[in-house]
Amino acid sequence: MIETMTPLVEDHAAGLEERGYCIIRGALPPATIAALDQDLAEDFARTPFCEGAFYGTTTKRFGRLLIRSQHAAALVRHAAILATVETLLSRWCDRIQLNVAQAIAVHPGAPAQMPHRDQDMWRAPAGEAEYLVNVIWPLTRFTAANGATMVWPDSHGANALIPEPRTAPVAAEMAPGDALMFLGSTLHGAGANRTEEVRRGIVVGYSLGWLKPYENQWLAYPPEVARSFPPELAALVGYRQHRPNLGNYEGQCPSVLLGERVDQPLAAIDALRPDQAAMVDAYLASQAT
């Protein structure tokens, strides 16, 4: 499986590094996307329109997708996409985390969204590191007319420091089953919906494991919910420490909350990177001589 996946991962990673984005055609079966869209239909109908000029008053948004539909996990846990994200972000973190899983419906008459970079949610240095990778999955067909996501090629990385983009935007036209991946440093924004149809999609984002995520995962998926998740998914939504000792519960990995005996006193346990453990061992050895 890994051998057949590697060329795909290398291709996706190269596109992200070179252009700041890539489109994966046929990433999932359209039937999976259709089933997810059907599961979310009532939530789309009941959710009120957003407030504020950035979210858009003709747009609806809601999260907690992993408990709204069993099909959402297929997007969040897509093997080639996760491997691509880990390839790109692992140089800056011990592990990645789920940053957001959100459904979005852009209604007729919606204006174009202000071009922006998602990394700007954190007040961190730009152009030196990548903090997240986002993936947009269309639930309905994305066209230039109905507001497909606009992406500015080569606006990522160090080019994010340039006041004005050097390239014209591209409309990411896609069909259900396709996926748009782009870096947190890439300039983008929803296009204007000039049609009479509602454009629906999903954004799944992954960020460095030591950042505060956009969606509060522990509230979205508390222990009584996360206990039903496969271990890998529970870890992705936050039930795993980021070395050294970051995000612990009583000094242990928060995955302990998913077990049966969570009301017992716990001993704090080191969770160090190998280089840190070696440094501690060397210090203790020097003190013993």
Rank of each mutant, 00 (worst) to 15 (best):
G259P: 03
L258Q: 01
M174W: 06
C50Y: 01
T195Y: 09
L36G: 11
T57M: 11
C22P: 09
E197N: 09
A45S: 12
S90I: 00
D94I: 00
L36H: 10
C93Q: 01
R243T: 02
G127F: 03
G56S: 06
L211Q: 04
V100P: 08
T59C: 13
H116W: 08
R77D: 10
Y249E: 04
S185Y: 03
Q97K: 15
D37F: 05
V262P: 05
L246W: 06
V100H: 12
L65S: 08
V225M: 10
D178W: 06
M114Y: 03
L88Q: 01
Y21H: 15
R77A: 15
V225T: 13
R91K: 06
V262I: 15
E17A: 13
A172W: 03
E130K: 11
H242T: 15
A145V: 04
V85W: 01
R77I: 05
P111S: 06
F49L: 15
G251I: 05
R19S: 11
A101M: 11
E10C: 08
L132A: 14
P111M: 00
H116L: 12
T149E: 08
A35W: 05
A105T: 05
Q97M: 13
P265K: 02
D120N: 14
G205S: 15
Q217V: 07
S155V: 07
P138F: 03
R240C: 04
E42R: 14
D281P: 04
M114I: 07
E42A: 14
P29Y: 04
S255H: 04
S228L: 07
T143C: 13
R123S: 13
I136E: 11
G26Q: 11
N134E: 15
V203F: 11
Q276G: 09
W92T: 00
L82P: 00
Q276E: 13
S228A: 15
Y206W: 05
V76A: 08
V170H: 15
H107Y: 13
T195L: 10
L208F: 12
P169K: 06
G15E: 00
A41I: 10
H116G: 10
R200H: 09
I162S: 10
L257E: 02
